[in-house]
Each structure stands twice: as structure tokens, then as C-alpha cells.
């Protein structure tokens, strides 16, 4: 059962990824990316990480991709222009990518302590303890300092974005100024 679901959603994931590259219209590509994100969430669920799966759906498919489609709609981006590209890139590119991923996968599988994934095990093995508790124990207890530092980093990034967008002395239209009061 788990294996069937795995192949189904891995297939969806790959099909979405390939479609993402082949589509010329930005909104179709964005929607393919949503398919990829959601299929990945199902794969996490199959590995027993239910919190991660739902977080993936809420954060990536729900928030990030909505912003993507929002921007595409707002700018009304048209069809992407195709360049032929260099012939060398198309000939060497695909074999190079395949080789790179093969090397990465072999290295990851041979690292100490990492083995093949076991489908559907996490769903049944710890009856009293959800992996939400384990995850929060790790994040807010053992790795508290890196977690807090990361959040400060994100805060700085937000402040930087606001500072860049808000140019000093920029003219606010009269109508908006009235509305803000």
C-alpha cells in the first residue's frame, strides 16, 4: 500500500518538475511547482513525518506559491521568450545533471548513520509520542540558540527589504495620505 502511494506521488512529483521546465507560460510553471510541493508533502507523510508534511503544504503550497501566482497575475507576465541556447549546453547539460545527482545520492547513502528510508514506519512506531513533540524538543530545547539566531536573521532580512523599498523622502500620493489618517 505504502509502496503504491510512494510510486504514485513520486511520479506526480517528477511529472510536475518536468512540466515546470517545459511550460512556457509562467502561471503554468507556478502551478506545476505547487504539484511538486504537494507531492513532496505526501512523501513526507509516507515517511511518518506528518507535521513536516502539513507544514510543507501550509508554508510552500499555501503561502509562498500564492505569492508567486499573485506576482505573476499582478504583472500579467506573458509567454516566456525562447532562446535556442548553446548546442553544447543542451548536449552536455543533461548527462552532467544525471551524473551530479548520481554522485550526490551515492555520497548521501554512504554517509555514516544514513540508510535507506523505511516507508510507513514512523506512522506506527511511537503510539504515545507524536513527532511534533520530538521536533519541538529538538528545536526549542537542544538547538534553541541556532533557532533564535535564524529568526533574528530573518527579521534583519525583513527590515532590510522594508528599508530598500521605502526610499527616504518618497512622495506618497495625496489620496493615500488622507486614507492613512
Amino acid at each position: 500500500m505504502h509502496l503504491i502511494l510512494f510510486f504514485l506521488f513520486a511520479g506526480f512529483c517528477l511529472a510536475g518538475a518536468i512540466n515546470l521546465l517545459l511550460q512556457t507560460h509562467p502561471i503554468n510553471s507556478a502551478l506545476s511547482l505547487i504539484v511538486v510541493m504537494t507531492s513532496l508533502a505526501v512523501l513526507y507523510l509516507l515517511l511518518g513525518a506528518e507535521f513536516l508534511a502539513i507544514a510543507q503544504i501550509i508554508v510552500y503550497s499555501g503561502a509562498v506559491m500564492v505569492l508567486f501566482t499573485f506576482v505573476v497575475m499582478l504583472l500579467n507576465a506573458g509567454r516566456e521568450e525562447r532562446t535556442l541556447g548553446s548546442r553544447a549546453a543542451s548536449r552536455i547539460g543533461f548527462p552532467a545533471v544525471v551524473a551530479l545527482f548520481a554522485i550526490l545520492a551515492t555520497i548521501l547513502l554512504h554517509v555514516q548513520g544514513l540508510g535507506a528510508a523505511h516507508l510507513g514506519e514512523g506512522l506506527s512506531n511511537a503510539p504515545g509520542q507524536s513527532n511534533l513533540e520530538l521536533l519541538s524538543q529538538v528545536l526549542f530545547h537542544e538547538l534553541l540558540l541556532p533557532f533564535e539566531v535564524t529568526s533574528v536573521l530573518i527579521l534583519i532580512a525583513i527590515l532590510g527589504a522594508v528599508a530598500l523599498a521605502h526610499v527616504e523622502g518618497s512622495k506618497i500620493p495625496e489620496s493615500e495620505r488622507v486614507a492613512q489618517k
Partner: peptide
């Protein structure tokens, strides 16, 4: 009955936005 039920509801709601956004576009 699943142990992240509340988050599932929030997730499904956040996917529901696409219906309206894509309809308009």
C-alpha cells in the same frame, strides 16, 4: 482522527485560495 487535524484544516484552507485566484486570472 489524526494528530495534526487542526493544521490539516489550515492547510486545506490555504490551498482553497487558488480556486478564487485562478478563476479571476
Amino acid at each position: 482522527n489524526i494528530n495534526v487535524g487542526l493544521l490539516v484544516i489550515l492547510g486545506i484552507t490555504s490551498i482553497g485560495v487558488y480556486g478564487i485566484a485562478l478563476a479571476g486570472w
